[in-house]
Simulated scan of single mutants.
Amino acid sequence: MTEQGTAHEPKHKQDLTRRKVVAVGAGAVVAVGVGGTVATGAFAGDTGAADATATASSSAGACYKLTSETVEGPYYIDADKIRQDITEDQEGIPLTLTLKVIDADTCKPVRNAAVDVWHCTALGVYSGYESVGNGGGGGAPSGAPTDAPSGTPTDVPSGTPTGEPPSGGPGGGGGGHVEPTDDERYLRGTWKTDKHGTVTFTSVFPGWYQGRCVHIHVKVHVDGAWTDAGYEGGHTCHTGQLFFAEEAVLRTEDVAPYSANAVTRTTLTEDTIYPQNGAEGGLLTLKYNKNRISKGVRAALTLGVTPDETHEG
Rank of each mutant, 00 (worst) to 15 (best):
V115F: 02
E312H: 14
S131G: 08
D78R: 07
G92W: 08
T310W: 05
K219Y: 05
R83V: 01
T47K: 06
K81W: 08
A79M: 04
Q276Y: 05
C237F: 05
T2H: 07
E72D: 06
C107G: 09
V34C: 11
P307E: 07
Y258W: 10
E164S: 15
Q4E: 13
D80T: 14
N291S: 10
H8V: 13
A256W: 15
G136Y: 13
G48L: 05
T2D: 09
K295G: 14
E9A: 13
V32L: 14
S57C: 12
S68R: 13
V218T: 05
T302D: 05
V30D: 09
G189K: 03
I216A: 06
T269P: 04
G171W: 14
C237L: 09
D15W: 06
I82C: 02
G173K: 07
G73D: 03
C237W: 04
T252I: 08
T227E: 01
D105A: 06
T17G: 15
Y64C: 02
P149Q: 12
R83H: 08
G281W: 12
A229C: 07
A52T: 06
V115S: 00
G211Y: 08
A28C: 08
Y209R: 04
I273P: 01
G143P: 04
E9W: 11
V34T: 12
A256F: 15
G197M: 11
V110S: 03
D182L: 02
Y76C: 04
P180H: 10
N291Y: 11
I293Y: 04
T181E: 06
T267P: 01
Q241C: 13
A262S: 13
T227K: 01
N261V: 02
P141S: 11
A62E: 01
A26M: 10
G48P: 03
A54I: 11
P141E: 10
V24H: 13
I77V: 11
R265V: 00
A140T: 02
G25M: 09
G197T: 01
C63V: 03
G151F: 10
G139Y: 10
C63G: 08
I216V: 07
A28V: 09
S57M: 14
